[in-house]
Write a protein that binds this DNA or RNA. Structure first.
Lengths: 327, 327
DNA sequence: TTGAAAGCGCTAACAC
DNA sequence: GTGTTAGCGCTTTCAA
């Protein structure tokens, strides 16, 4: 910029004004400056600008896995909102590891992102307190934060799971299994609660072998599924706690010689083209992302009301697999 | 940092040393500094650090759509490599719009990212010349750059498509349709060429109605598919130019009362669970991302050899839909 | 309409 | 082992 000023024979500030489209530069001067800019191939160094201005026009998004078909649209939606507000999005995957989440979040804060959208892997966010006090707007999505007050955008996992399991029960099932994520994760925990509520609400017992929380690793899911399908009290229906589990269960159930009903949490592409088509409790990840990002920019624009909690409902989409009667 | 120094009664540089874990600070001083740091809730401002050091330990990734199941794993793979090199990843979706690509790339350059991985939407990258000359390492993935010399990581789309179409021909088809992306996109163009090569290699004519490049919008794909399936010279097999097209074609073909063979470019989740299971020409997007990011960091670490071109092969995965005989 | 000077928070270079 | 000085490239302030 110094070079541009020298070449155009003007002051530094005049160049700055031209670069930023500020008023108060005579057309002639502006032309000369523009000419120098292109001749020198000058482009503003935003790092310096950021340092001076104190904000970065960028926001951070930390989620579990960018490549998960559930989170990818969420990320994309946040990106679109950020773009509409002239901000860049920096995102990172925590791989469901609390330490990695913290490391990532802190790295983003060190970069002085203006705000943060977080799908928490950790259940303790006290590490964020100084950052939030320093003015980093923060919105939690999909799962609530731990030990910290902030805006939250959640999905009613409890009600969704309860509805899905009740749907299976309504179709005559009395031995319903549940395979889901580790209960440390809030949504997983809520879905287990929903399962239990539906079962007990119908006066049905839950055999210990029917409840299998754990990792979403296909091997683990398969093993637990086979156990509850071939055990002493075999289930006639299974509820899958999220899209990763559902996809594995589709494969396991297809290998069976008898029909077993299936309802999965989360919709997924081509669910309607499988045989049988898969009944799901759907949520809208893009909508989640849009809502969260919207909330974030509200804060960035100065909203000062107390932290809010927005809960989105789920939608049961019946397609066939959840309406199979017990064998 | 000034405050920390004042509170600990030491110089600025000593604090800097402690913050960066540099040697040459007595244990006692270090302890005092650490104490001040936590007491004041200090955290280094990376914007200032970046300005001073001249590099940002961050790289940019620009692709078509972060939520596309083909690109999501690519992005994730790039992220992992970046992380292994201590760099952050900033990514943006160009939505297949050349202007948006340029806008995004330039914004990333203004942020002084150290390097760039680009899935081009544009076919002219001269706008990047000044940036590359200024030292921004750049790697193009999936599609070649236009009017610029840089590392490239491509997939052999021509050979892949030719193999897929030849596979259909080998199973007795003589009227094979092609539905793909707009030919402006390099991979789309190559796949059309592959289709034509396979057809003419087998001495088969290509009826104009059988070749339908265009957007991947489901409506467009469906309309063109129905046209070539119900026209005067109905095709008995279709080759889909990418995963978006394949997914739509699966639906269209399922509505038909006769079997039509299908081979799709790109593998996709649950392809093997459809009926019939879908035969695909698979590429490995995560591998593409890893290779590209690896190349980028080689450059960042000072590699000066001339731009290289790496072409990855595709794999034909036969599952059933591509082995259906002509009706 | 224009520009000079100060300084954002840090690190490199060089004292001490 | 520690501190001082200068300056990264920009914007802000204020004076001309």
């Amino acid at each position: 910029m110094k070079d541009v000023a020298a070449r155009a024979g003007v002051g530094l500030k005049t160049v700055s004004r031209v670069v930023n489209g500020e008023a108060g530069v005579s057309p002639d001067t502006e032309r000369r400056v523009q000419e120098s800019i292109t001749a020198l191939g000058f482009r503003r160094n935003d790092s310096a600008r950021i340092l001076r201005k104190g904000h970065t026009a960028s926001i951070g998004l930390v989620l579990e896995d960018l490549a998960d078909p559930f989170y990818a649209p969420l990320s994309r939606a946040v990106e679109e909102v950020a773009r509409a507000h002239g901000a860049l999005l920096i995102n990172g995957s925590s791989a469901e590891d609390p330490e990695r989440e913290q490391e990532l979040v802190l790295a983003l804060c060190a970069r002085r992102v203006d705000g943060l959208v977080i799908v928490p892997a950790s259940d303790d966010h006290r590490y964020l307190e100084p950052e939030m006090a320093a003015g980093v707007a923060t919105v939690f999505v999909d799962r609530p934060p731990g030990n910290v007050e902030a805006d939250q955008v959640l999905v009613d996992s409890f009600a969704g799971a309860r509805e899905g399991v009740a749907h299976l029960i309504a179709h005559g099932h009395r031995r319903v299994g549940f395979i889901g994520d580790v209960p440390r994760i809030h949504t997983a925990h809520e879905r287990i609660r929903g399962y239990e509520a539906a079962m007990s609400g119908a006066g049905l017992p839950v055999h210990p072998g029917w409840l299998a929380p754990g990792s979403t690793d296909p091997g683990r899911v398969r093993a637990d599924a086979e156990r509850m399908l071939n055990g002493p009290e075999p289930v006639t229906a299974v509820f899958a706690g999220n899209n990763r589990v559902t996809v594995t269960l589709v494969r396991v159930l297809a290998e069976l010689d008898r029909p077993v009903a299936l309802v999965g949490f989360d919709d997924f592409e081509l669910a309607d083209m499988l045989s049988p088509p898969v009944t799901v409790v759907a949520q809208d990840p893009a909508q989640l992302g849009r809502t969260a990002a919207g909330l974030l920019f509200r804060r960035l624009e100065g909203a000062h009301d107390p932290p809010c909690l927005m809960t989105h409902p789920t939608t049961l989409i019946t397609r066939g697999s959840g309406e199979l009667p017990p064998a």
